[in-house]
Write a protein that binds this DNA or RNA. Structure first.
Length: 752
DNA sequence: GGCAGCACTTAGCACTCTTGTT
DNA sequence: AACAAGAGTGCTAAGTGCTGCC
């Protein structure tokens, strides 16, 4: 595979986040082949070292900065003050507070406010209703509120439709505005994006559904499948047996060997035992679940070996359940529900080093369930002999069903599919917010650079954190309850132990090395040069702190977001991720797409652009278990193809020689044929190599997450339209459903 | 302002289905 | 037809951010 990376530099170097050191690049090129495992990190480094959007600026400013050096020194005062106070006021203190806290970006939507000082308080309700406004008019500069008139018309239209129609009956579509085709097909797609949204904070007017599908009841084991304690068979009570089967089913999984898992499991298991069982079963080590485990393995084998008819039957049954429970009616439309099945009981599998792993996840009963639907709908029936916990009619929320889960005590919901109006609108809105950020991001960047020099510690911390969020696409980093979850962090919750500072490293100045576990306990490792002032600030923040102290002890996400809100209406930390992801895709596509190339090559370029984003956002995956093998197979194919190619070339050569001597039509023709054959084989080889490259580069990188959550689909749709690439090559069926709005509305000149 | 509760988005992994190959 | 690999889907954990209360 080595040698196939000719596109690599292409991919990264011409990206939006240009590396500033050529030496560095070359170094990586070498390394890349040697240490494939670290490739992802390397690529990320290459990609991220600079952000061209403001890189130049920063370099220029660098010199200026020298002049203001003394100001850095001035912060020492703060540091000292800070030092004394740190311990007691950790995190929360706000020196010089009041000043700005009441600020809001309310009056100036898509732009930032310079430094407002007013104490105006705006009603959250009002704000909310503003946010409901559609704001897809990216082309108009800084336009406060939407054109009311037309919206009102449309809103009225919607209302009328609802009034005239009797609640649920018309599932299909609203005959709106008369500009849509008359309805013929029952399954005509509803273009919700051509309608107006609710502006009053409500999410729907009418909602009817059939409630959740419960997990199948426990089926006791056949009597021949035995559980052994201390070598002796023992019949368990149904309750204890069920929990035992959960453990048995996970026996091959490595975490049944983990101490915490076993401890938590055993503790919860004992709660389900009869008092007699409790007294006997005192040591998990003496429990033998292997017969149970074998039994379940055999069952799953049997399921696989089922006849076609049997499988068909199950499929049909699933389809029936889907049709009955998988849809709801929301405001005249039949919409797909995302997760209509209640989570079955089992053992909790947290990610990473989770303190609660192995705990029993309780079975959910109708009595745990809250139903949400409209008053005038046909309410779902609880299973015979049971009751719902509650039936409510709250149209300010989008969920249909909820229950409280017993591990963290958090609420779980049944909600609609991403293809639904309610999810789609929100998604669209998210990208519009990101596009508004695009308009003011330069200002925000300038501002946080200024803030690096602030006299106030909290402002400096805020500014450095924001720089990380912007440059490295870090997550906000909310505080978490200690001991309740795995120890992971985001930007605001970074601790001193998570970064290392190198005044100089590998020929670069002011390098920061990040190494921490982020969401889902995925490791974030990155070594990146930062601007001098950032570096100095970090040194300051770290002074006199223990490794497990907060790096930004005067910052949290709510402070940060409050500040962002002042800079732009609707701006929060996560918008930067969306913005940077989407803008990177757009730039990468511009850079990488080669007009000359054929469709597969263009798609490779797309994947590369997508990958650049995934690297930026640190979207990882475990390398597929079969990775090495499948790579070998592919390599074998490539080798075979190479042989075939040299053979074809040889034939061509001899044909040419032949033609030179004979000079007749026939031999000329033979040359042509051979030429074509060579070409064909070359193409095939190219294709295989491309495939190998693509796959290798993708080893530990997950593209799906960014595609689904961070990349404005209109960018991809526009790209497809521009280059005549079928959108199916980029989005599969589900994705096309989710992004139907984008596919319908984006033309080839769409600009994020 | 600090916290808890709530609603909603984002995330990776395991399993299943589909497709292409032998 | 059997099989393997890859694509697609379902599942549910783990984030973000807002609100309302004290």
């Amino acid at each position: 595979m080595s040698g196939d990376h000719s596109h690599n530099e292409n991919q990264i170097d011409c990206g939006s986040r240009v590396n500033d050191s050529h030496k560095h690049k070359d170094k990586y090129k070498e390394k890349e082949h040697k240490h494939k495992d670290h490739k992802k990190d390397k690529e990320r480094e290459k990609l991220k070292h600079g952000n061209s959007d403001y890189k130049d600026l920063s370099d220029k400013k660098h010199k200026e900065k020298e002049k203001i050096k003394h100001k850095d020194g001035s912060t020492d005062k703060y540091k000292d003050k800070h030092k004394e106070k740190r311990k007691e006021e950790k995190t929360k203190s706000l020196d010089g507070k009041v000043k700005k806290d009441k600020e809001n970006g309310f009056a100036s939507p898509p732009h930032f406010k310079p430094e407002p000082e007013d104490n105006f308080y705006h009603s959250p309700k009002y704000e909310k209703s503003l946010k409901r406004e559609r704001d897809d008019d990216h082309d108009s500069e800084i336009k406060p509120k939407k054109i009311k008139t037309e919206n009102d018309k449309k809103a009225k239209k919607r209302k009328q439709d609802e009034d005239t129609k009797s609640k649920k009956t018309k599932i299909k579509k609203e005959p709106n505005d008369g500009k849509k085709k008359a309805k013929k097909e029952p399954e005509e797609k509803w273009k919700w994006w051509e309608e107006e949204r609710y502006t009053d904070g409500s999410k729907w007017r009418f909602l009817e559904h059939k409630g959740p599908v419960f997990a199948p009841p426990y089926e006791p084991l056949p009597s021949h499948v035995k559980f052994y304690y201390d070598g002796k068979p023992m019949k368990l009570s149904p309750g204890a047996e069920e929990v035992a089967t959960f453990f048995a089913k996970m026996l091959d999984h490595e975490y049944t060997s983990k101490d915490i898992f076993r401890k938590n499991f055993f503790k919860d298991w004992r709660k389900e035992m009869t008092s007699e069982e409790k007294s006997i079963l005192t040591d998990l080590k003496k429990c033998n679940f292997s017969e149970m485990s074998e039994y379940f393995k055999a069952q799953s084998e049997a399921r696989k070996a089922m006849t076609k008819e049997g499988k068909q039957k199950i499929k049909e049954e699933n389809e029936r359940i889907l049709q009955e429970y998988g849809f709801c009616i929301m405001d005249n439309h039949r919409e797909r529900i995302a997760n209509f099945r209640i989570e079955p009981p089992g053992l909790f599998r947290g990610r990473g080093d989770h303190p609660k792993m192995g705990m029993l996840k309780r079975r959910i009963r109708p009595e745990d369930i809250i139903i949400n639907c409209s008053k005038d709908s046909k309410h779902p029936e609880p299973p015979p002999g049971t009751k719902w916990k509650e039936v409510r009619h709250d149209n300010k929320v989008t969920w249909l069903v909820s229950w409280t889960e017993n591990i963290q005590g958090s609420i779980k919901y049944i909600m609609l599919n991403p293809s639904s109006r309610i999810k789609g609108e929100k998604d669209w809105q998210k990208y519009e917010t990101a596009r508004r950020l695009k308009k003011c991001v330069d200002h925000i960047r300038n501002q946080y650079r200024e803030d690096w020099k602030s006299k106030e510690m909290r402002i400096r911390q805020r500014a450095v954190a924001l720089y990380f969020i912007d440059k490295l696409a870090l997550r906000a980093g909310n505080e978490k309850e200690e001991g309740e979850t795995a120890d992971t962090v985001g930007c605001c919750s970074l601790r001193v132990e998570h970064i290392k500072l190198y005044p100089e490293s590998e020929g670069q100045e002011f390098v920061v090395e990040f190494d921490f576990l982020g969401k889902d306990s995925i490791r974030y490792y990155n070594k990146v040069p930062v601007e001098k002032r950032v570096f100095k600030n970090l040194q300051l923040f770290m002074e006199n702190k223990e490794p497990d102290d907060d790096l930004f002890d005067r910052l949290n996400t709510s402070i940060l977001n409050k500040h962002l809100q002042e800079l732009m209406d609707g701006l929060t930390a996560k918008v930067f991720r969306t913005y940077n992801a989407s803008i990177t895709l757009q730039q990468q596509l511009k850079e990488l797409t080669n007009t000359e190339e054929n469709i597969p090559a263009k798609i490779l370029s797309y994947n590369r652009a997508n990958r650049a984003v995934a690297i930026l956002c640190n979207h990882q995956r475990a390398p597929p278990k079969t990775f090495e093998k499948s790579m070998q197979n592919l390599q074998a194919k490539i080798d075979a193809k190479r042989d075939q190619l040299s053979e074809a070339k040889r034939e061509l050569k001899s044909a040419k020689a032949d033609a030179k001597i004979r000079k007749d039509e026939k031999s000329k023709k033979a040359v042509e044929t051979k030429k074509k054959a060579v070409q064909r084989v070359e193409e095939q080889l190219m294709k295989l190599e491309v495939q190998a490259t693509d796959r290798e580069e993708n080893k530990q990188i997950a593209l799906g997450t960014s595609k689904l959550n961070y990349l404005d689909p209109r960018i991809s749709v526009a790209w497809c339209k521009k280059w005549g690439i079928p959108v199916e090559k980029i989005y599969n069926k589900t994705q096309r459903e989710k992004f139907a709005w984008a596919i319908d509305m984006a033309d080839e000149d769409f600009e994020f």
